[in-house]
Design a protein around this nucleic acid. Structure first.
Lengths: 364, 364
DNA sequence: TTGAAAGCGCTAACAG
DNA sequence: CTGTTAGCGCTTTCAA
């Protein structure tokens, strides 16, 4: 025992002393640090007897691996960063849930950052996560145009997967849903029920106030939903006049105003496609205020299933997206990149139209 | 230039080389590591000129601090761990939003773990976070009884704050709301409107199926709401027969069953207090199925405001909790502990009863 | 005002 | 099968 290392008190009192290090365990078990590491880490060759002695020592000292040290040595953490607009939004919350679960099952922890769809915040977040040496990140990009920061981070050591929104010309794999197809089906349902005056309310952080034309910087999922709706309308020879189309930022008051202005048009649409839950809520609120009844005066389909949708009267028809699966797929793609180094392809998941009661039959 | 350290290629090509270290910056700026650290870290004494040279070098090399190394040296990370039941649940999602925001503004990142209110998962989560050397954690405890793991983690280096639920006999500061008062006010509102048959549906992970008596291990917030409701009933000389009380786990089907069985009682209650959003949704669904109309046949008050509550017809009256403020308070308490070492007191925040349309007047 | 050097706790290459 | 040893990148005395 000629070890010259600093003598740490081998006290077992939990409160007073600093947490035990590997060295302390090794000492108590009367082995070297290397052996202790092998025994605890379950790699290399160690006698069963030694292993047990080490395990006992670790238990006695209440030893916990110092992840920071391990991360430093490995040059990388077991952490995956998630950059999204707003965790309190139910879509992102569900996606986060899936991401956290999947990460946990693969031995990763999850660091979450909100951007409020602000590009500057997003750029900072990506930098911070890079500094933290996360193993990879999952990003819901706030802008379809600006991607230098993603390029830089994704190209380097850190792996990256984009979620929910595509970005042009960037070699980063992306998990999305078929928003276009979902919107198309929704509008086709309206048309099949006899609706010809169909309105569309689009939520996008790119708009600063409610407006009739697509703002610069609208994100792919929002644009795709408009595209899909237009496709279905065109196929049926129907028009989408500006009076029935609104883009609005995510603000309850402005959403209600946007819906209201559509419903005040002459003639007013008999059906509205809401591009997300917030808009659907706005449609409900606006109809209430205008004394219109959803499911009788105004047909409604909304993107994204919510626990409320099916419980309301009338039950709201929705374009359901496989949110949990999206989050899981993103993590799997990312981890495969981290571990295998393979590039991974883009994934586009199908939507499901759940037809409930909010799309009434418009007698011809 | 007789530095004997390994020569790292000082290439500026972003893709090929490893990220620049402090040493690389120091070399390029022709100073020592210590000086470079001082210049970049903004502490100690450095000439303005040197500082600028270092800054320029850092920029040129696209230098990013290695947080893992810093954490290892400091023995602690700039990360706060959050252990909660389910991030996809809107209450926790909002709390998480507040926590992440507040952490970010104070220079901390946020690691989130879901437990699904499972004690074993919670114990593991606390251990993992301890291993990661988080600066502190915010825990929504899944059980009012088992606290050894929290004691151990909270007593040692890592600081801790409990959120939403109290635990007996533990020296850890806690942020809660006045659930008892909130429930009391809600029931008082029912009574003021002439309701005397008042039902109560309580969500608790401690129940494995819907039942009429309080399960072991129900969490303080759930129990307090029952207590508060009972207080108001007693004060009015009213009874709470078992037929009008149900405890149910968080499962849509079981929630609906619980509500349905109450509404099938003879006589049936004219008012129901729902202890959370999930229950409120269940009440809506059950009423739908039974052809009862909320706000006319059944009065409803629910805990926790949701964007849907005010948009529905009838608009749902709720006991609103200051969720964002709770999360913020928890972080502030925790960070004060981390930095100042002070113990920090418990915080109980008030609720607000928002009276909308779901509590109708019961003519005498 | 700057530099040299000693570790933080862990892992892995190499030697015994 | 086990031990010795050399760092990972950073911060921080202590000396110059």
């Amino acid at each position: 025992m000629t070890q010259k290392e600093k003598t740490a008190e081998e006290s077992q009192q939990s409160g007073s002393s600093r947490p035990a290090r590997l060295l302390d365990v090794a000492r108590l078990a009367k082995v070297s640090r290397a052996t202790a590491a092998r025994a605890l880490g379950g790699y290399g060759l160690v006698t069963e007897e030694t292993r047990e002695r080490v395990a006992a020592a670790a238990r006695a000292l209440n030893y916990r691996l110092n992840e920071a040290a391990r991360a430093m040595r490995a040059g990388r953490t077991q952490v995956i960063g998630v950059v999204l607009a707003d965790i309190s939004n139910s879509f992102f919350a569900s996606a986060a849930r899936a991401i956290i679960d999947t990460c946990a099952s693969l031995g990763y922890q999850t660091l979450i950052v909100n951007t409020d769809d602000d590009l500057k915040t997003e750029i900072e977040a990506v930098q911070t996560l890079t500094e933290k040496r996360v193993a990879g990140m999952i990003v819901v990009p706030s802008s379809p145009d600006h991607n230098e920061h993603l390029q830089k981070a994704g190209a380097g050591e850190g792996r990256m997967v984009l979620l929910d929104r595509r970005i042009a010309d960037i070699p980063v794999s992306t998990v999305t849903t078929d928003d276009r197809g979902g919107a198309r089906e929704a509008v086709e349902l309206f048309i099949a029920r006899g609706h010809t005056r169909i309105g569309l309310v689009v939520l996008t952080a790119a708009a600063t106030s409610q407006r009739q034309s697509e703002p610069r910087g609208a994100v792919s999922s929002a644009r795709d939903r408009v595209l899909g709706a237009r496709e279905a309308l065109e196929a049926a020879g129907l028009d989408l006049p500006k009076a029935w189309l609104r883009y609005t930022p995510n603000n309850p008051r402005m959403i209600i105003d946007a819906v209201t202005s559509i419903l005040r048009a002459e003639p007013r649409p008999t059906a509205i496609l809401a591009t997300c839950e917030e808009i659907a809520i706005g449609v409900l609120a606006a109809c209430r205020a205008l004394n219109l009844v959803v499911g009788r005066d105004v047909a409604l389909v909304s993107f994204d299933e919510s626990p409320w949708s099916g419980a309301l009267t009338p039950a709201i028809s929705v374009v359901q997206r496989p949110i949990y699966e999206m989050g899981r797929a993103a993590v799997n793609l990312l981890v495969r990149q981290i571990q295998g180094g393979e590039a991974g392809r883009d994934v586009e998941m199908p939507t499901i139209l759940i037809d409930r009661e909010s799309v009434f039959d418009l007698a011809p």
